[in-house]
Amino acid sequence: MKKQIRLRVNGMDRTVEVAPRTSLLEAVRDQLGLTGAKLGCDMQVCGACTLLLDGKPVSACSFLAVDADGSELTTIEGLAAGDRLHPLQEAFMDCGALQCGYCTSGFILTAKALLDEQPRPSEEQIKDYLGGNFCRCGCYQEIIQAVKKVAGI
């Protein structure tokens, strides 16, 4: 049985109808057309589907959409303010922190959550926080560099 849920997505109020088993990722990709978050492993391991739910990174592939009812959601599409990209987006480009780009939205959103929590994290904190996102192209060094750049460390 479908249930109507309300979400505030990138600052806009949205309503979607979902079955209880619909994942947050399916709701966001298929119904809201926000495809920046990707399905990677479908098991909360790789981080390609990361979204910020009330500011915190979650694996949208395994989070029930019904359980997000009333929450605030940030997706990669919501980071830039018009033409002005988020500093993390700029830093990822400057440092070369991506290749194929499939993991990128997950990394940037996770890094955003970290910097919102802790504006000047140590390198160790960055590694801890981002340690559960996979980049198969292997841009880990550049990703750390990009986050450090934005954090000013």
């Binding site: 990709r29 926000l34 495809t35 920046g36 978050a37 990707k38 399905l39 997706t75 990669i76 599409e77 980071l79 830039a80 990209l85 987006q89 990822f92 480009m93 400057d94 070369g96 991506l98 780009g101 499939y102 990128t104 939205s105 940037i108």
Partner: peptide, 21 residues
Amino acid sequence: KSVRRLDYKTKVTGRAQYLAD
């Protein structure tokens, strides 16, 4: 000389279309 890649802007903004999109 290192240059910023041409595929970057569409990728960091989540706009790049991959097949499943």
